[in-house]
Simulated assay, not measured.
Amino acid sequence: MKFETKAIHGGQQHEPSTGAVSMPIYQTSTFAQTAPGVHKGYEYSRSGNPTRTALEKAFASLENGAHGFAFASGIAAVDCVLKLLKPGDEVLTTNDIYGGSFRIFTQVFERYNIKFQFIKHDDVHKMDQYFTDNTKLIWIETPSNPLLNLVDIKKITSLAKPKNILVAVDNTFATPYLQRPLDLGADIVMHSATKYLGGHSDVILGGLIVKDKNLTDELYFIQKSCGAIAGPMDSFLVLRGIKTLHLRMECHCSNAKELAHFLKAHSKVDNVYWPGFKTHPNHVIAKSQMKDFGGMVSFTLKNNQLSSTLKILEGLSLFTVGESLGGVESLCSHPVSMSHASVPKKDRDSVGIVDSLIRVSVGIENIEDLIADLDQALDLI
């Protein structure tokens, strides 16, 4: 089954009792049992809900996995993965990840004696030199947030598997339409489905997808025991969003390409981060493991002044200044004060998250209108 068909039909069936084409919202906390332990597959909505099950099957289908899990948020999904570990275990990751992931790593799980090592991106494909007997997990974000660096998933998994180290990939920016990490050897895929999978900025939800039966059992135990599950209404909204994922991603990618080239040619813009440029240091990796280059673009200003950056953001009309990304509308954010505010300044500076960095989630509006809006905002400085 091709991806476009999976987006609409993958893992899905018409509701059996009525034939409803759209999965109903099973807004219930519990389910009737004819006798203790005798039921129709559902007992209590924390352990399972039909609407959530439909979404989890869709997740698995899109990522070519065996089982999916839906959580209350992307960070709740990250939390579940980290609970596979025990005190003394070590996690390797890169030094340019999402600020929320950095925060939960360093300010929550380090308290429980789990060690995190943040590797410079230049060294990521030599990650085996950082392996110890305690290394149990590699956490990859590709493309990364907000600098759009890429990691060769096949390379990392080839290093990790002989050592029985799990590889988890945050696939939020790429989506399964552009990249499927399980096919490249990863053990776990994570999504902030709040973003492109939902696609309409109206839901908070996270997802995990795996192939391995033992991992499935462990993650389900944690999901059920700790309870950070997605509710039925939120599950319904993401299910609905997934059905147009392929159409939206084609437009996101096309618009991002044109906007990136506009920014690259602008006299006031310094660096433009977009994997589609042949000059991007990871362009070859992007071509090898992604279908297209995504809907995200980041850029800095030549004067690198915070005051100029704020003037641009305040002068935008069509672009909304806000947290998040991946919705149908175009968003601009300021990582230093928003998504990466929890990352210490020295760590931000070391990877290039500077005061003038603006991250753009390019929506599906008319690209000429978007370019005109950004152009007039740049003219303000």
Rank of each mutant, 00 (worst) to 15 (best):
E4R: 10
I8C: 05
H9A: 15
Q13W: 13
H14Q: 07
E15N: 12
P16Q: 06
T18W: 07
V21C: 03
T28P: 00
F31E: 09
T34M: 09
T34G: 06
K40A: 10
G41M: 01
P50M: 06
A54Q: 09
K57F: 00
F59S: 11
E63A: 14
G65I: 10
H67T: 13
A72S: 12
V81T: 11
L84C: 13
E90N: 14
V91D: 01
F105N: 10
V108H: 12
F109L: 03
R111Y: 12
F116N: 01
Q117P: 00
H121Q: 15
D122S: 15
V124N: 00
H125R: 06
D133P: 00
I138K: 01
T142W: 10
S144P: 09
L147G: 11
L147K: 05
L148D: 08
D152Y: 00
D152K: 05
K155D: 14
I156P: 01
A160Y: 14
N164W: 04
D170K: 11
F173D: 05
F173H: 14
L178T: 10
R180F: 07
R180L: 01
P181K: 06
H191K: 06
A193S: 14
G198R: 06
D202K: 02
I204C: 12
L205Q: 05
D212T: 06
D217F: 07
D217H: 12
L219I: 15
L219G: 06
S225L: 14
C226N: 14
M233G: 00
S235A: 12
G241N: 03
T244P: 00
L247D: 04
S254Q: 11
E258S: 13
H261M: 10
L263M: 03
A265Y: 03
V269E: 02
N271T: 07
P281M: 15
N282C: 11
A286M: 05
V297H: 07
N303H: 04
N303Y: 01
T309C: 09
F319K: 14
T320V: 08
L325R: 08
L325V: 05
V328A: 09
C332F: 14
C332S: 02
S342K: 08
V343R: 05
V343H: 04
R348N: 01
D349S: 09
S350L: 07
S350I: 04
G352V: 03
D355G: 04
I358A: 04
V360A: 11
I364W: 06
L370D: 00
L370V: 02
I371P: 00
D373A: 02
Q376V: 15
Q376L: 13
